[in-house]
């Protein structure tokens, strides 16, 4: 049994993100292509490609999700966010055709999380994006379930490499169920073992810490 010594905060998945979830923090650093809708005075030094003092209207650049979310306003247009390519019409057709062939880790790795966050920005395509996210999850569910419930005592890296971060977490919970059952069946569950915390515990020496 692989018991974790601490309980990580789960990602929020939907439109709300969890402040303390490490996955959601990493997710908020994903870059989004944006276009400025007004002049950003005296911020030209941020944009390395030009020497102007201001960032002019209509500049295209990439900003992290957290900044785009903060700057985005419905009433006063500061910037407009363009959809990353995997949420556009073309890729959506691919996902609807067969969600199993897509390498979501390469696409994402936070495909579902980022997709849900994209719904914060007004776009006529929003309902379609939400629908595609749901259908992709449903379409890939069977494979995630079967691989997580059948891979016992083998190298799972080939199975998880194409999974999104969310699916990886699901895969792990499926594996813990399987491993728990198998170790019980083999009679390992009744043996007492030392806690991981004790095994990994090392006393730090002051001489190691001081340079």
């Amino acid at each position: 049994m692989d018991k974790q010594s601490y309980l990580p905060v789960q990602p929020g998945v939907g439109m709300e993100d969890n402040f303390l979830s490490l996955d959601d923090i990493l997710l908020s650093h994903q870059r989004l292509p944006i276009r400025t809708e007004c002049v950003f005075p005296r911020l030209g030094f941020l944009e390395k490609s030009t020497d102007t003092q201001d960032i002019p209207l209509g500049t295209k650049m990439e900003l992290p999700l957290w900044l785009s979310k903060g700057l985005y306003e419905r009433k006063r247009k500061v910037l407009s966010v363009e959809l990353p390519k995997m949420y556009r019409e073309g890729w959506r057709t691919v996902f609807t055709a067969d969600p199993n062939v897509v390498d979501l880790h390469k696409m994402g790795p936070y495909y579902y999380g980022l997709g849900s966050q994209m719904l914060h920005f007004d776009s006529p395509e929003n309902p379609d994006i939400a629908q595609t996210l749901l259908q992709t999850f449903i379409g890939r569910f069977r494979r995630t379930m079967d691989s997580s419930q059948n891979a016992y005592n083998e190298d799972t890296s080939a199975l998880v490499e194409r999974l999104d971060c969310l699916e990886k977490a699901l895969f792990r919970s499926g594996q813990s169920g399987l491993n728990g059952f198998q170790s019980w069946e083999k009679g390992q569950a009744s043996q007492l073992t030392a806690s991981n915390l004790v095994l990994n515990y090392r006393k730090r020496k002051i001489t190691d810490l001081q340079p």
Binding site: A130, M145, L170
Partner: peptide
């Protein structure tokens, strides 16, 4: 044996559905 996996996936699906 299937409890954690199924509950977690239903949770995810619920959230993706509430996006709709």
């Amino acid at each position: 044996t299937i409890r954690t996996f199924l509950l977690d996936s239903l949770n995810c699906m619920y959230k993706l559905r509430s996006n709709l």
